[in-house]
Amino acid sequence: MASTFFNNKARAAAASSNSKPKVTDNKEQNRLAPWVEKYRPKTLDDVAAQDHTTKVLQRTLQASNLPHMLFYGPPGTGKTSTILALAKSLFGPALYRSRILELNASDERGIGIRSGCRIPRPIPVPAVQDHYLDEADSMTQDAQSALRRTMETYSRITRFCLVCNYVTRIIEPLASRCSKFRFKSLDNAAAGVRLQDIANAENLKLEDGVTDTLIRVAEGDLRRAITYLQSAARLAGTSGLAEKSSDGDEEMADAGAPGPGIITVRTIEEIAGVVPESILDDLMQAMQPKSSGSSYGAVSKVVTDLVADGWSATQLISQLYRRVVFNEAIPDIQKNKIVMAFSEMDKRLVDGSDEHLSVLDLTLRISGIMSGTKA
Rank of each mutant, 00 (worst) to 15 (best):
D137A: 03
S138Y: 09
S138T: 05
M139K: 00
M139G: 00
T140D: 12
T140C: 07
Q141W: 13
A143I: 07
A143C: 03
S145P: 00
A146K: 01
R148A: 04
R149T: 12
T150R: 04
M151G: 01
M151N: 02
S155K: 01
S155L: 03
R156S: 11
R156G: 03
I157H: 02
F160V: 01
F160Q: 01
F160R: 03
C161L: 12
V163Y: 05
E172T: 10
P173A: 15
P173M: 14
P173H: 13
L174T: 09
L174A: 06
C178E: 06
S179H: 11
K180F: 15
K180T: 14
F181Q: 11
F181M: 14
F183N: 09
K184V: 14
S185C: 15
D187V: 10
A189I: 12
A190M: 12
A190V: 11
A190R: 11
A191W: 08
A191C: 11
G192E: 07
V193I: 14
V193W: 04
R194S: 09
L195C: 05
Q196E: 14
I198L: 15
I198R: 13
N200K: 11
N200T: 11
E202Q: 04
N203L: 14
L204F: 12
K205N: 13
K205V: 12
L206A: 04
E207I: 02
V210I: 08
V210F: 10
T211M: 14
D212H: 10
D212M: 08
D212N: 15
L214F: 12
I215L: 13
R216G: 03
R216W: 10
A218K: 00
E219P: 04
G220H: 02
R223L: 12
R223S: 09
A225D: 10
A225P: 01
I226K: 02
Y228D: 04
Q230M: 06
S231K: 00
A232V: 04
A232F: 07
A233V: 05
A236L: 03
A236N: 00
G237A: 06
T238K: 02
T238S: 04
T238W: 00
G240Y: 04
G240N: 07
K244Q: 14
S246C: 07
S246W: 11
D247E: 12
D249E: 07
M252W: 06
A257L: 06
P258S: 14
P258C: 15
I262C: 10
T264C: 03
R266E: 15
I268L: 11
E270T: 10
E270A: 07
I271R: 00
I271Q: 00
A272L: 08
G273F: 08
G273Q: 06
V274G: 00
P276R: 00
L280A: 06
